[in-house]
């Protein structure tokens, strides 16, 4: 009895343990790794990824996978960047518009999935090309650089000179999402719908409105991700975003989110984001280039899928 309990605790803590081991290893390999500056770097380089991974988690909980998230980010980035840079809209209006656009794009994926009776992954293969095109049309392939300081403060500002504002935004957003997913009726319904849509329907749940709620929530999160990313880099262009999708999905799989839907814990996904972040930062610091990082991420994804399927 005691052994199985210990096993369960260890299984639950496996991700934090892995994170701690990675931190220890890289600290031993490079004396600059475990410094306040570098740990802050790891955090600020991954806050927006944490928010995006929460969006991926929500969609995976309801049984979907959205491959177009990266291009949604790119659409919002250029809309917000262009609106602010060319002074078409006040900053706060541009931010709201960006999030609303992302909600529409996310809902469009959900709606198309329903109408076409197809898995969101397949639908989003099509919509990612549509969103990519929209993004390039809006930006005209230009980079919107030198954005206003007031806007950049969202992604680069430090309260009291040390506390990253994007960290506070991320924390607040994640707390709200965690509350919605784990403490509210709608959150539990999302799990039920993802676990077994037919059983959920027979139990009297309105499956599609619940799924739409998930798409709206994911859209808001992806919109916030785009804003955090744009404000952090101080520029917006159509190449931003696409490479983040893979990281978000990897983090979710590593965080134990079931590909079939109905399972997944936010805190584990967030820890997984920072495992990938530490891996990326640490490998760079010890002099391993981009390609070894790709290999490491891919292998982690494969091992996570194996472990996930073995447990199932």
């Amino acid at each position: 009895m005691k052994t199985s309990r210990l096993k369960s605790v260890l299984s639950n803590l496996s991700l934090p343990i892995l994170l701690a081991v990675l931190v220890l290893v890289f600290s031993l390999l490079n004396d600059r790794f475990f410094t306040q500056l570098n740990l802050t770097n790891i955090l600020v380089q991954n806050f927006h990824i944490a928010v995006m991974s929460a969006a991926v988690l929500i969609l995976m909980i309801i049984g979907g996978i959205d491959l177009s998230i990266g291009y949604q980010i790119s659409v919002v980035a250029v809309i917000v960047g262009k609106a602010i840079k060319e002074e078409i809209l006040p900053i706060w209006v541009a931010l709201i518009l960006g999030i609303l656009v992302c909600v529409v794009l996310s809902l469009f994926n959900g709606y198309m999935s329903k109408v076409l009776r197809s898995h969101t992954m397949i639908v989003s293969l099509g919509t990612m090309a549509v969103f990519q095109g929209i993004s390039y049309l809006i930006s005209n392939s230009k980079t919107f650089n030198a954005l206003p300081v007031d806007f950049m403060y969202i992604g680069q500002g430090r309260i009291g000179g040390w506390l990253p504002l994007n960290g506070i935004i991320t924390l607040v957003v994640l707390l709200i999402i965690g509350y919605i997913l784990h403490k509210t009726y709608i959150g539990r319904q999302m799990y039920a719908v993802g676990d077994n849509p037919e059983a959920a329907r027979l139990a009297g749940l309105n499956v599609w409105p619940i799924k739409y709620a998930a798409y709206i929530l994911a859209g808001i999160l992806v919109g916030i991700t785009a804003i955090l990313l744009t404000a952090r880099s101080g520029s917006a262009d159509s190449t931003m975003g696409p490479d983040l999708t893979f990281t978000g999905i990897t983090a979710c799989v590593l965080g134990g989110v079931a590909l079939k839907g109905g399972e997944g814990t936010l805190w584990k996904v967030i820890v997984a984001v920072f495992i990938l972040g530490v891996l990326s930062n640490g490998m760079q610091l010890v002099g391993l280039g981009t390609y070894p990082q790709y290999i490491a991420k891919g292998l982690i994804m494969l091992v996570s899928i194996y472990l996930s399927n073995r447990d199932a």
Partner: peptide, 19 residues
């Protein structure tokens, strides 16, 4: 650098400045 992007440049500068 991980990508030919502005964000990759920002992250690279952060990491280089650390070491």
């Amino acid at each position: 650098v991980t990508a030919e992007s502005v964000e990759a440049g920002v992250s690279a500068a952060e990491n280089i400045y650390t070491t």
